[in-house]
């Protein structure tokens, strides 16, 4: 009987399972499905390491200090009413914009100089100039701190040796601001240099030759040939560096700890101080989230410009 029953069921089951397997096969054969499956690990990584922490930070920012009650956007309101935090916004913008501009200018100048060195000697110069970028910043900043150290600054020792006055590098607000920018520029300029050097090498020589035939000076060649050809790479590197510089933590933390009078704090160092050290994690999360809209606006305009130029070139 069981064998009869199974025999009776078999003809009905076979077409059903065949249909199911063929539809599975069709599903698997669809290119979008394959693409989705192949990107699944990446999606999981982004979800786990970017989306989830970001969502959790947003959630934390809506809690009260004890993390026991939902208070909506009150942490942001509290921060905006705080003079110290308004100073942090100003200092973060000043620090990031000044440092990125200087890094871009110095990086471009270095790249230009390197580009004109014969390729035989170029490699060693390139290697040496990249050294600041490859040293872990927490370590190199410690080195700078020793040079700026309030009482025994080696830079001041040199200045004194030449009859100059000692400078309160970290004790006076403007000097402290300049100090953190100097260290950030020293660390970050090689990145711009290497990116710009790569871009310079991709500019066709014929364009310069044509410009020279038309009687263009070196300056005109730079302004009308080099810069337009590098606009996209300049935009992308500036955007990338702006994001990284805005989120900088170690330089301020090691060099000034935000002082004097909180005047050198940037978002990340202030978020750490408020969130972790002062035990107010929701407000610390709110501080760190302030970067997001600022950078989103900048990223939108920069990337829109890059896309437009690419379309024009296409």
């Amino acid at each position: 009987m069981p064998s009869d029953a199974s025999a009776a069921l078999a003809p009905g089951r076979a077409p059903a399972s065949a249909a199911r397997s063929s539809s599975l096969r069709r599903f698997a054969r669809r290119r979008s499905t394959v693409a989705f499956l192949m990107t699944l690990p990446l999606i999981a990584v982004i979800g786990g390491l970017v989306a989830w922490p970001a969502s959790y930070a947003i959630y934390l920012a809506t809690l009260n200090r004890r993390m026991t009650a939902f208070i909506g956007l009150e942490n942001f309101d509290i921060l905006l009413e705080n003079e110290t935090f308004r100073g942090v916004i100003w200092q973060s913008c000043f620090f990031a914009i000044t440092a990125v501009l200087l890094k871009a200018l110095i990086g471009f100048w270095l790249a230009h100089m390197l580009h004109h060195i014969p390729s035989k000697g170029q490699r060693k110069w390139r290697g040496m100039l990249l050294v600041p970028w490859v040293i872990p910043p927490a370590l190199s900043t410690l080195g700078w701190w020793w040079m700026f150290e309030p009482s025994y600054s080696s830079i001041n020792w040199l200045l004194n040796a030449f009859g100059g006055p000692s400078i309160p590098w970290l004790g006076e607000p403007w000097w402290a601001r300049i100090s953190v920018i100097i260290v950030n520029v020293w660390y970050g300029a090689p990145f711009f240099m290497i990116m710009y050097l790569a871009a310079l090498k991709s500019v066709p020589d014929q364009l310069y030759e044509a410009a020279a035939i038309d009687g263009a000076t070196g300056w005109q060649g730079l302004v009308h040939v080099t810069l337009p050809m590098m606009r996209n790479i300049i935009s992308i590197t500036v955007l990338f560096s702006l994001i990284v510089t805005f989120a900088n933590y170690d330089i301020v933390r090691v060099l000034t700890n935000g002082g004097p009078r909180d005047l050198t704090h940037v978002f990340a160092s202030y978020a750490f101080q408020v969130g972790v050290l002062s035990g107010n994690i929701p407000r610390g999360a709110a501080v760190s989230l302030f970067m997001f809209p600022l950078l989103a606006v900048v990223a939108f305009f920069v990337l829109r410009g890059v896309n437009r130029r690419q379309k024009e070139m296409a």
């Binding site: 009482s151 004790g171 004097p260």
Partner: peptide
């Protein structure tokens, strides 16, 4: 006080004493 005390950390006073300054 020394004009840079605004930037002193927890080791600066130790150094000031130990250096004899």
């Amino acid at each position: 006080l020394p004009n840079d005390v605004w930037a002193w950390d927890d080791a600066s006073n130790n150094r000031a004493l130990i250096s004899g300054r």
